[in-house]
Every structure is written in C-alpha cells, then in structure tokens.
Write a protein that binds this DNA or RNA. Structure first.
Lengths: 203, 203
DNA sequence: GTCTATAGAAGGATAGAC
DNA sequence: GTCTATCCTTCTATAGAC
C-alpha cells in the first residue's frame, strides 16, 4: 500500500528526471513524463502538484548527488598531486556514468541563478578551501600557489573535466567527423588532465 | 521604402537575437520579441514565417560570427607560444563582449545536434589542423606534441576560455559569495591561461 | 508593410467518478 | 491512489482590413 505509493512516486520521479535532463525545464512536457512513467497526467499533479515543484525536486536531488560525491575529495589525506589525479579519475568516471548532468545544471542555473543560491546556502565554500590550505600548506608554497591564483587554478581544473560534457553535442559531432572515439578520448583524459595540470603548476 | 523594410527586418532580427540568447529556443516567446522590436506579432510572421525559421536565422548568424572571428588565428604567422597568447587575448576579449554566446551555442547544439551539422558542412576542419601542422612542424616536435594528443590539447585550450562563460551563472554567483570580481578574473585569465597552457606543454 | 482580431493547437492543471 | 474528461491559459500562426 504505502509500499506501492512509494514505488509510483519513484517511477514518476525517474521519468521526470529523464525528461528534464533531456529537454530542460522549458522543453519538458508533462505528457511525456506521464508516458515514460506509464501513468496519466493527473497522477503527476497528485504527487507533485505543479511542473515547477516537480522540477525543483529533480534539480535538488541532482545537485545533492553531485555535492555529496565530491565533498569527500577535500577530506582525503593525499599529496596535492595525488589529489589531482584522484579527482580526475573520480570526476570523469562519474561524468561518464552521468553524461547529461553538466549541460543540465549549467543551463538551468544560467536561466535562473536563484536555483544555485538555494544550493549554496546549504554549504560552506570557505571551509573547503580552508581544508585544502591546512592540508597542503607547504606544498602550496613549493608550487608557488598564492591565494590570489586559487580562483584561476580551481576553475581551470574544473573546466578541463566538465567542458567535454557541457559541450558534449559539439564534441560528439566533431569527433565523429574527425573519426575519433569520444569514449577513448574520455578514458585518456583521466590521466592527460592530471599530467597537464600538475606540469602547469610546477615551478 | 525598401530602406525601411530592411530596417524593420533588422530591428526584428536584433530583438529575436536578444530573446533567443536570453531564453533559448524553448523559452523564447514571439510576443516578447514583438515587444522588444516595438511591433506586433503578425509582423514577425510576415518577415520570418515561423518561430523555427527565425531561430535558425539567428543561430546561423551567431555561428558565422564566431567562425569568421577565429578562422584567421590559423593564418597568423606567429610562433606556437605567440599564437596561444594571441588566441586567449582575442578569444576572452570577444567573449567579454558577447558573454551569452557560449551557453546559447552549447545548449542549442546539445538539444539538437543537427544544427551543428549544417554549420560543419560549410567548413573543412582538417585544413585548419593541416595549416597548424605545416606552420609549426618543428615546434610540435620540440614540444613533443604527437598527432594523438591533439584532441586532448585543443579541447583543453578551448575549455579554459569558454568554460567560465558557459558556466557564467555559477561563476558569477560563486564569485559574489567569495567576494571576487568576475571582470577582474576574466582580465587576469587572458595571461594566466596562456602561461598555464604553455607551461604544461613544455617538456 | 503594418495593424487588429481571432483561429487553432498545445500544454498545465483540476473535477469528479471509481 | 488512479483514471477519464475537461477546463483554461498560453502560444504560434493566419485572416483580413487599412
């Protein structure tokens, strides 16, 4: 009974996730979600009331999934180099399993920045940086990484793994035309990215 | 007369560009475009027949603008290092003037890859790489850049300048919270990006 | 070429039966 | 909890006057 309710709600949630990831908030259709879930439109409203509320549920679940997956990176006791290698292996593998997430998140936040504000209000960004600074104080000196350079470096590190997925439509089309395998490119990228960044950071 | 026609069509085109850049194909509204252009909806259809055709006109104009702006990079007679510096100065400056283009292009191509196919059919990608290879044959050897690494390197170079704009919503929100100026970050990035890449490429 | 008025379709949401 | 039927708004597109 309540078992079955939970099941239906979950089926709807997964269908909604699929539709929103594919078409975004504006392009998604309630009828498509109902079809994918194998139920009718009215039931969507019974569980989630409005399309907007349904979208928010999906968006926040995805945001939480991403955050909970990468917060632990800051707790690992590894050298800076090891941490960079660890990050790229984990991150690119995660994105291989969830290739639609970057474009979805980027696009929906560009359309409505308030969505990010709610997510950000639940975490303390400074604490992440403080952890890094404590764990790697001497290494940062050795690499000549000053506090001012941190935004440039952090965003560069993220760009290298996220961009191929954010621009996946372009990459896949371009690679096809150039006879390159996107999958192989991603496998190689786990190591290439780490090598590239570490070399760029060395004095 | 025909002067005035041209003017009206251009005013509509610019209003459409603004609306599509802001909301994308799915989110854009014909009524908004009419309002921005200071005319009524019927006139939009008189000039462009359908929303879809209007979108295609805007999309292709933007794609052409980007391509025509960066094809010349491959013709410049500069060393590889100079070319990388030149690229980042030009590219980031261009994106500062057109900050909405990356998210728009990426998103619309992800939604409908066929749009890229039409653009790609008009250019010869291989010729760009051939030009680079001819101009920098000895430098590529010196840097140990093999043919296999090209996709990794080229996509990394692009990622570093495009990503901050593709993820602009996130960056602006995050930087605000961290009390960092996005504008200053972008100015610094022109040189940082070049330094970073050149250092990573050196043996 | 430009407008007003409206057709016609699509999509989100609800009422009410079971 | 789930369904069918339907309302109502929004949006693209067209008809027809000027």
């Amino acid at each position: 009974m309540s078992e079955n309710d939970k099941l239906t709600e979950e089926i709807i949630f997964e269908a909604a996730t699929d539709e929103f990831l594919d078409r975004g908030m504006d392009g998604a259709r309630m009828q498509n979600i109902a079809d994918k879930a194998g139920i009718n439109k009215a039931l969507l409203h019974y569980y989630y009331r409005t399309k907007d509320k349904m979208f928010n549920a999906v968006f926040e679940k995805i945001a939480e999934k991403i955050l909970s997956r990468f917060a632990p990176v800051f707790d690992e006791t590894l050298t800076l180099e090891e941490k960079i290698r660890f990050f790229y292996r984990e991150h690119i593998t995660f994105l291989q399993d969830n290739p639609r997430l970057p474009a979805f998140i980027l696009n929906e936040i560009n359309r409505n920045p308030a969505r990010l504000r709610r997510v950000l209000s639940t975490i303390d960004i400074h604490s992440f940086w403080n952890k890094l600074e404590e764990q790697h104080r001497d290494e940062l000196v050795r690499y000549n990484i000053t506090k001012e350079k941190i935004p440039q470096i952090m965003t560069t590190i993220a760009a290298i793994s996220v961009f191929p997925f954010a621009a996946r439509g372009i990459f896949e089309e371009l690679f096809k035309k150039l006879d390159i395998s996107f999958d192989e490119y991603l496998e190689e990228r786990k190591e290439f990215a780490a090598d590239f960044v570490i070399k760029a950071l060395r004095k």
